[in-house]
Design a protein around this nucleic acid. Structure first.
Length: 860
RNA sequence: GCCGGGGUGGCGGAAUGGGCAGACGCAAGGGACUUAAAAUCCCUCGGGCCGCAAGCCUGUGCGGGUUCGAGUCCCGCCCUCGGCACCA
């Protein structure tokens, strides 16, 4: 008797079996090709959300697919468990960050298990555990030794909301990446990682990543921001040391009619000495919020210092200004202003009536300084430029560099936007920075033998008054490792992006007690063959991880330079929003089945489709999905609804469609299982009659699904192919003429087994269950991925499309081996084609073998 | 402003190296089964014309072009999403 598809029983059963068999544990095996499949590990914020579900469903298909293809697959999972939300929760709910974090981990681990993901849980890592973060400290000390970790006072991004510093990468449009509150600038003494030591390698490496999406590569290139130009020294009129400027347009040097310094530039105060307006301006600018000051639409503002420099090429005396639009951090903090050829300089010159000189002429028209409405920034021919006149600007740039270098007044130079990575955080729930300050010995690194510097448990957490660790005397007070005198510990903790910068290495040897990375194991597993995660880390995490990989390579710990061979950035999970005119945004459960607000019964408006988030109240809880439809449906829908790299629009109806499909599969196999478990002798394809088409379809499906997975993981079309196969099987009669019975059984069994094996990576539980139902004693995941038979797919008849003058006029069936001449003849003889050829003369016949004939005509 | 992605039925999306546009799913309509409903199964489903049907015209953001043939290639626009942005 047919049983209904009871996903709950099936899924619990197989999850238990997998766990009992430790089915996904892996160890290094040099005899097998390895495959490292990694999804970005989650921050344990409480519950798994739809983005995780999608991310991990994608990863699980990849992992299970490669396992079936015979690879030794490393597929680990862990927790990015240090971070600010734990502290916020501690303040709000009075829970210790550790309690909150570990409760969340326990819950989320169960959720992941209920999704049936094939992780090697024996490799689980938790960043907030001393056995993980001690290696953050170890790596920090190694970097400190090499000068790659250093402390300096700097203007840093301060988030008032988080009460801590943020790295440049963590500020998005002047706002905190986490809570979107405004970021201000503060001058603080901070620890930095010298990512700029690897700038050029990080940039060039981007070109060696064919498996990364262009988008991400572009974003990394933009972030690194390489500019090629020149540094030029402008002597001061009163003879003091010259001002060095950076420019990418040294071909416009003859047009430099004034100079501008950043307000923070040391010379600015000096040159403006005794001039009250200058001092006041500088003071005002330094106090002003830097995000506002450096915004593109802020009005340009400046003041003349009273001092002059000499343009080294024209030898003219030019005034030196201080202005808000010049930044100390970029280049040398000083610029030459060429108002005719730089829009910013142009606007500034117009405002303060400074002179313009045209030194680049476009090919066609002639520019006149007085008539310019805006700066001419394009290429052209150099004019008013002494010996360089009539040189095209690109060559001009090279010629000017040579000229500067010959005379020792400048040189070719490269500038980058990338800054060093500020890692100090004035928060509790992070890795303590292993540094001790001693009055006698200065800054002393904690000896390696004293690691880990444990994060104390008893801490009062508040968002006010600086780092919580500073108030823990037992932590702060320490004996200096060098002189044994009293000393103080560093109380800042590390940016939690440090943890994720190398966790992929730790997964290779999660239990190594005496080292961060076990070199032979890492050498076996690394690099990550497929990395999967959200686009939001295109710069942040992915840049830091690349940097760390190069650092550990130079420490001799790993042989490779790039951590992730292939990167898949999955799209966001989106859903429409609902708004009630009186009660604002509504959660889906706050709307009745008639589409009305549960508060006031007013119909809700359907708003635009946006990324799922609590603030937009358009979230769907994976727990509900799991309860109603099960893990296989949840997985299948998230993979079917859109290609992985595109945004996925949530659809309750679509989920039901996925559920219906699995039900159909279940019913189909279940209803045939008894008969199919009786043996059926294989039949040669040539002898197949009633089952021929079904058998071909099974082979075609193998081909299609395999190719779709191999070609950028097109899960949606692979699943569509499985649906087609099920549709075909749904039409197939297992019982018929007794003479055909053996063939029908053979063909059906082959097709059903093929279907289940191909479906297994997507919907593993139901595939296992039905596989067992067919009488198999072992797991379906012990099957190897099927291979299609090309001779079966090879059709004996093919459909040839016939066009007349490019328009489809007829379709004809021809033997597959038909040659060009046969195609042409058959097409011309076709009766439908004939009617279209009346009154026309055949001018030309284009024949595409096995596909198409196009008859080109001329009117008679 | 610069850089990158995208624009295909009512909707999500297919079309892999220029060769049948709309696979698969959802929604919708009709039918079967049922006392009824759900579930399931079958049929229709870009637009238009004619219609019993066969068929014809048209259609992939817009305008040009290349080609026997363009959703796909080229040129010029429009719209949209994302990144960067006073970066010298």
């Amino acid at each position: 008797m047919a049983k209904p598809y009871n996903f709950k029983t099936i899924e619990t059963k197989w999850q238990r079996i997998w766990e009992e068999r430790d089915a996904f544990r892996v160890t290094e095996d040099p005899g097998q090709p390895k495959y490292y499949c990694l999804e970005m590990y989650p921050y344990p914020s409480g519950k798994i959300h739809m983005g995780h579900l999608r991310n991990y469903s994608i990863g699980d298909v990849v992992a299970r697919y490669f396992r079936m293809r015979g690879y030794n697959v490393l597929h680990p999972m862990g927790w990015d468990s240090f971070g600010l939300p734990a502290e916020n929760a501690a303040i709000e709910h009075g829970l210790h960050p550790a309690t909150w974090t570990y409760d969340n981990i326990a819950y989320m681990r169960e959720q992941l298990k209920r999704m049936g993901f094939s992780y090697d849980w024996g490799r689980e890592i938790t960043c907030s555990e001393p056995d993980y973060y001690r290696w953050n400290q170890w790596l920090f000390l190694k970097m400190y030794e090499k000068g790659l970790a250093y402390k300096k006072p700097a203007f840093v991004n301060w988030c008032e909301e988080c009460q801590t510093v943020l790295a440049n990468e963590q500020v998005e449009g002047g706002r905190c990446w986490r809570d979107e509150s405004e970021v201000i600038q503060k001058e603080l003494e901070q620890w930095f990682f010298k990512i700029t030591a690897y700038t050029e390698e990080l940039l060039e490496g981007v070109d060696q990543l064919p498996g990364w999406p262009d988008r991400v590569k572009t974003m990394q290139r933009n972030w690194i921001g390489k500019s090629v130009g020149a540094e030029v020294n402008f002597p001061l009129v009163n003879g003091e040391s010259p001002i060095t400027i950076f420019t990418t347009r040294q071909d416009t040097l003859f047009g430099a009619t004034f100079m501008v310094l950043a307000p923070e530039h040391p010379l600015a105060l000096q040159l403006g000495e005794g001039k009250a307006d200058v001092q006041a301006f500088i003071k005002r600018m330094r106090a002003e919020d830097r995000v506002v000051r450096t915004a593109a639409d802020t009005e340009k503002e400046g003041v003349f210092t009273g001092a002059y420099a000499i343009n080294p090429l024209t030898e003219e005396k030019i005034p030196i200004w201080v202005a808000n639009f010049v930044l100390l951090e970029y280049g040398t903090g000083a610029i030459m202003a060429v108002p005719a050829h730089d829009q910013r300089d142009f606007e500034f010159a117009k405002k303060y009536h400074l002179p313009l000189r045209v030194v680049i002429q476009p090919e066609e028209e002639g520019l006149a300084a007085e008539a310019l409405a805006k700066a001419y920034e394009d290429e052209g021919v150099m004019v008013n430029s002494g010996p360089f006149n009539s040189l095209p600007s690109p060559e001009g740039r090279e010629a000017v560099v040579r000229f500067l270098e010959e005379r020792g007044i400048g040189k070719g130079a490269v500038n980058y936007r990338l800054r060093d990575w500020g890692i100090s955080r004035q928060r509790y729930w992070g890795t303590p920075i292993p540094i001790i300050y001693c009055d006698q010995c200065g800054t002393v690194p904690v000896p390696y033998d004293d690691l880990p510097v444990l994060l104390p448990k008893d801490v009062e957490i508040s968002m006010k008054g600086g780092s919580p660790l500073a108030k823990v005397e037992s932590f702060v007070n320490v004996w200096c490792p060098t002189c044994r005198g009293p000393a103080r510990r560093e109380t800042d903790t590390m940016d939690t992006f440090v943890d994720s910068s190398w966790y992929f290495l730790r997964f290779c040897n999660p239990h190594a007690r005496d080292r961060a990375v076990d070199e032979p194991k890492v050498a076996y597993w690394m690099p990550v063959d497929q990395y999967i995660g959200g686009i939001e880390h295109a710069v942040l995490h992915l840049l830091y991880a690349r940097f760390f990989t190069k650092v550990v390579r130079d420490l001799g710990l790993v042989p490779h330079s790039e951590p992730f061979v292939n990167l898949l950035t999955q799209g966001m999970v989106c859903k429409e929003t609902y708004r009630c005119p009186t009660h604002g945004l509504r959660f889906p459960q706050e709307i009745d089945p008639q589409g009305r607000c549960t508060e006031c019964a007013h119909p809700v408006e359907i708003g635009r489709t946006e990324k799922m988030s609590k603030s937009r109240k358009n979230v769907v809880d994976p727990d509900d999905l799991l309860k109603r439809y099960g893990a296989d449906t949840a997985r299948l829908f998230s993979l079917f609804a859109a290609p992985p790299e595109k945004d996925l629009e949530w659809s309750d109806k679509g989920v039901e469609g996925a559920f219906r499909f699995l039900n159909r599969v279940y019913r189909l196999v279940d209803s045939w299982a008894d008969e199919l478990s009786r043996p059926a002798a294989p039949i040669s394809f040539n002898d197949l009659t009633v089952g021929r088409a079904v058998h071909q379809k099974a082979h075609l499906t193998i081909k299609k699904v395999t190719e779709d997975l191999d070609r950028d993981f097109h899960f949606n079309t692979a699943i569509a192919a499985l649906m087609e196969l099920v549709n075909v099987l749904g039409q197939f009669e297992l019982r018929g003429d007794p003479a055909e019975e053996a063939e029908r059984r053979y063909v059906a069994r082959f097709a059903v087994e093929t279907l289940l094996v191909l479906l297994a990576p997507f919907a593993p539980h139901v595939a296992e269950e039905l596989w067992e139902r067919l009488g198999h004693g072992s797991s379906i995941f012990e099957e190897s991925w099927p291979v299609y038979d090309a001779t079966v797919i090879e059709r004996e008849e093919i459909l040839v499309v016939v066009q007349v003058d490019g328009k489809l006029r007829s379709r004809i069936f021809l033997p597959a081996h038909a040659g060009e001449d046969e195609l042409r003849t058959a097409a011309l003889e076709d009766s439908r084609v004939q009617t279209w050829l009346q009154d026309k003369q055949v001018k030309r016949v284009v024949v595409v073998p096995k596909k198409l004939v196009n008859i080109v005509t001329a009117r008679l």
